[in-house]
Design a protein around this nucleic acid. Structure first.
Length: 841
DNA sequence: AGCACGCCGACT
DNA sequence: GTCGGCGTGCTC
């Protein structure tokens, strides 16, 4: 019957009428799904539009999907289901993006659905896992239908409703997707995905007058009534002075920050409580906007001669090259060069994307850019709520945002007319997505994007990745250098402290060399600030029994537990497991359970003991977890009251502090000797970047002290001399000898299973098959990674090295995929999971 | 991924 | 005798 109607329709309608849509669903299944297009949708439905579809056994689930293809050939071996709802009249996903999705899925060996899922902010994906919440800014109830209004009143009482709860509330038979679409369209509600452990938008508690007092007479009556209650009257008056409801009643809905009304006296607090109890005031919560707009607009930026020259050189090189590397030492003022180029590109009418590593974006740079570009600039940050991300997305489509500053995921925004992409701190590893697929590198994706849209790419760094610098030296990228510090500030003087000598002479105080202590003290006396870098958080990485050598280990992972003193617990930095600190050794009962090694927390602690009067702040994952903690720490440090900032690599990223003249670096050896072929490169980058925090102001030379057991190491010499090129020349030779990137591409396969033997068996077989086809020189492993078990899964890594030229990468990838699929369908091995990481770092 | 179906152990 | 463990297969 179904087939009969199909053929009937086909013969009745013109050829271009579409009945079927191939959709991208946000699930990790490597294929598109074909749905039927209801007749009334046939004309409106466009490629790139979002639709809502039922999915799974007895339509149990609902997804937002994206139309990838429209056609009229019915599937032969199943009945296609109908699309429930069309969400977009015009494509929300551009053709460029669909192309990008497909390319990424192929290149990074994942499913298009996974790419789409990461690309779209969850606010654009209604699904059965969605939740809805009332939009606190909504104040146009007159737009609502009666039914919607009752529903919204109900919703107001709840914090948020899940999709299923909404179904129950609205009653069976309601077209829930259509309802949500309508309410979202009226900006009455907000859709979001279940927030995992992610960002929770900062809420401000606000108060406003009960609606009845928006009328003048009612308000006057209220004030009269309160005549005998002066305290309460005062509160109301205070509210009215901030929110002149009597002048403009509509102001009331926006309310007033509760803290402003409380000020600091407890009297008004209790009066306010009473007023709220008596329904004079009502409280509500609002999402706090993250960047307030009070920066003075359009501060003229002035380029130094060196900056102007760099900018001109870049423009000149863009004539012949699509990609240019700006190699500028720390503090050379690359940002001004970027601003200049952005202004030119925006002025010529094209779009600009400015990528920054996650943490750097939170800082002063955004404020600086905002001063120049004002509200023409969109900000795309993972710490922003979904609605804000959706706003930016739509702003790009509408043309409101011609220029966006953003993190990694900003490459997914719907640009269609890019002229310039800047990738700042190009070497930063946080551009590579690690955990959920697609495991993409935003820099490389940006280069593809630019290629498709004929845009130029500017890669900027003080310590370029070997890959990029190699390309520049080969002439495939342009190269512009900026080797003078802004305002002619000098580069810091870097000194190596031999901790071996100090230990022998017993001049170390805990982890601190006497040289460092003297420098810190002198710095404090001069009222200048210091930064201490230790790339390890927590108090100490081991807890061990002195008598029997027992160490605290994670029950789920093959690592020792880190002792956190402030939280008074042991934590696993891999799976998050926490446990109590043992008083006695659980094996032998000894009380001599000691901590070994040190992290930022311990340094902070010891500083307080050594310099009791000093003000010390710590900045690491643990102190910046809270919403605005990062900015708070920076602000406090900038305020100048703080003497010493102790931190992990977090402090290396793009922070500008005028008053910092000393940087101390601990445990450099651990960094340098990390068992990874990129360790040297990483160490150079990290240590150079931290060093760059010292003495960024003209007229004073900063000092950097690096504590090491072996000052003779060549890498340290290179860092002292700021000899990037020397390091590059040595390192690139090594890479060539062992056929590592940039001479090859790497694909890492990680096999995981709860049973070590099964995991190993699968890995062995996979490696053997790959070796057979590709030769043993291209396959490394399988070997157990440094941490061989995480979350109770045993890991085995296989590394595949593919030469840049003379090998068909596509063919290799498809071969790898086939072998993996074989294993995954093998009776004995099918429950192993295999993670593919293309261009792994 | 998630969800249903299905085949084996410890419980009322 | 059943409840529920998770291994297996499928999703338009």
């Amino acid at each position: 019957m179904e087939n009969l109607t199909n053929t009937l329709f086909s013969s009745f309608e013109a050829d271009e009428v579409t009945f079927f849509a191939d959709l991208i669903l946000p699930i990790p299944v490597p294929r598109l799904f074909t749905y039927r297009v209801p007749r009334e949708m046939a004309e409106v439905l466009k490629i790139g539009a979002r639709v809502i579809v039922p999915f799974g056994k007895n339509n149990g689930r609902v997804f937002t999907a994206v139309v990838a293809r429209l056609h009229n050939s019915p599937p032969t071996n199943y009945q296609a289901r109908y699309i429930t709802e069309v969400l977009d009249e015009y494509p929300l996903v551009t053709g460029y993006q669909l192309e990008l999705f497909r390319w990424m899925a192929e290149y990074y060996m994942c499913c298009v659905g996974e790419v789409m899922n990461i690309a779209l902010p969850s606010g654009l994906k209604i699904s059965s896992q969605s939740k809805v919440q009332i939009n606190p800014d909504f104040d146009y109830p007159e737009l609502l239908t009666e039914f919607e209004d009752t529903l919204l009143t109900e919703l107001k009482k709840q914090q948020a409703l899940s999709y299923d709860e909404l179904v129950r509330l609205a009653g069976a038979g309601t077209n829930i997707p259509a309802l949500i679409k309508s309410l979202v369209g009226k900006k009455a509600i907000i859709v979001f995905e279940e927030v995992r452990e992610k960002y929770i938008p900062k809420m401000v508690r606000k108060v406003r007058l009960n609606r009845t007092y928006e009328e003048k007479e009612q308000l006057l009556a209220l004030l009269n009534r309160l005549e005998k209650l002066p305290k309460q009257q005062e509160v109301v008056m205070r509210y009215l002075s901030h929110v002149p409801v009597q002048m403009n009643a509509s102001l009331n809905q926006k309310g007033l920050d509760k803290t402003i009304l409380n000020q600091d006296d407890t009297v008004s607090q209790s009066s306010l409580t009473t007023l709220i109890k008596n329904a004079v005031f009502e409280t509500f919560e609002l999402i706090q906007p993250r960047f307030s707009d009070n920066a003075p607009p359009q501060a003229e930026i002035k380029l130094t001669d060196a900056q102007r020259e760099a900018s001109q050189q870049i423009m000149a090189q863009f004539e012949r090259q699509n990609i240019v590397l700006l190699h500028g030492i720390t503090g050379s003022g690359k940002t001004e060069v970027y601003i200049d180029l952005i202004q030119q590109a925006v002025g010529s009418g094209s779009q600009v994307l400015y990528l920054l590593p996650e943490i750097a974006l939170t800082t002063q740079i955004v404020v600086r850019l905002q001063r120049v570009f004002g509200d023409k600039m969109g900000i795309y940050h993972s710490k922003f709520s979904d609605n804000e991300r959706v706003e930016v997305w739509k702003g790009v489509v509408s043309g409101q945002y011609q220029f966006v500053v953003g993190v990694r995921s900003a490459v997914f925004l719907p640009f269609d007319n890019l002229g310039l992409i800047i990738v700042d701190e190009e070497h930063e590893t946080s551009y590579k997505q690690h955990d959920p697929a697609p495991r993409y590198h935003a820099r490389d994706v940006a280069i593809m994007l630019a290629h498709w849209q004929q845009a130029k790419v500017l890669l900027g760094s003080a310590t370029p990745s070997l890959e990029t610098y190699h390309q520049a030296k080969q002439g495939r990228y342009g190269l512009v250098e900026l080797f003078r510090r802004f305002g002619d500030a000098t580069l810091p003087n870097i000194l190596l402290i031999d901790t071996k000598v100090e230990k022998r002479q017993k001049t170390m105080k805990n982890e601190f060399s006497s040289a460092l202590l003297t420098a810190l003290e002198a710095n404090m006396e001069r009222r200048e600030q210091s930064i201490l870098f230790q790339n390890r958080r927590g108090y100490s990485p081991y807890m061990q029994c002195e008598d029997c050598d027992w160490t605290a280990e994670c029950p789920n992972c093959a690592v020792s537990l880190t002792y956190h003193q402030r939280a008074a617990e042991l934590r696993c930095h891999y799976c998050g497991h926490k446990e109590e600190v043992p008083r006695i050794c659980p094996v032998c009962g000894s009380t001599k359970v000691r901590t070994i090694g040190f992290g930022t927390e311990k340094l902070e602690d010891q500083l307080q003991i050594i310099f009791p009067k000093s003000k010390v702040l710590r900045m690491d994952l643990d102190t910046t977890r809270a919403k605005n903690a990062y900015q708070q720490i920076i602000q406090e440090f900038e305020g100048g009251e703080i003497d010493i900032l102790v931190g992990t690599q977090m402090i290396t990223k793009g922070l500008d502090f005028d008053n910092v003249s000393l940087v101390g670096i601990f445990d450099a050896d651990r960094l340098i000797h990390f068992p990874d072929f990129r360790a040297t490169e990483r160490s150079f980058q990290m240590l150079t970047q931290v060093s760059g925090r010292a003495g960024r102001r003209a007229g004073r030379q900063g000092t950097v002290l690096i504590q090491t057991n072996n000052p003779q190491q060549t890498i340290l010499q290179k860092i002292i001399e700021n000899d990037y090129k020397g390091l590059f020349d040595e390192e690139i030779q090594e890479r060539q000898n062992f056929n590592y990137p940039p001479f090859s591409r790497l694909i890492k396969l990680t096999v995981r299973h709860a049973d070590k033997a099964v995991s190993q068996q699968a890995a062995d077989r996979l490696a053997a098959e790959l070796t057979d086809a590709l030769g043993s020189s291209r396959i490394l492993g399988p070997e157990q990674p440094l941490v061989e078990r995480i979350r109770n899964l045993f890991l085995f890594d296989i590394l595949i090295k593919i030469e840049r030229d003379k090998v068909n990468v596509k063919a290799v990838k498809s071969y790898i995929q086939d072998r993996i699929n074989d294993i995954l369908t093998d009776k004995g091995l099918r429950q192993v999971s295999i993670v593919i990481d293309v261009d792994c770092l």
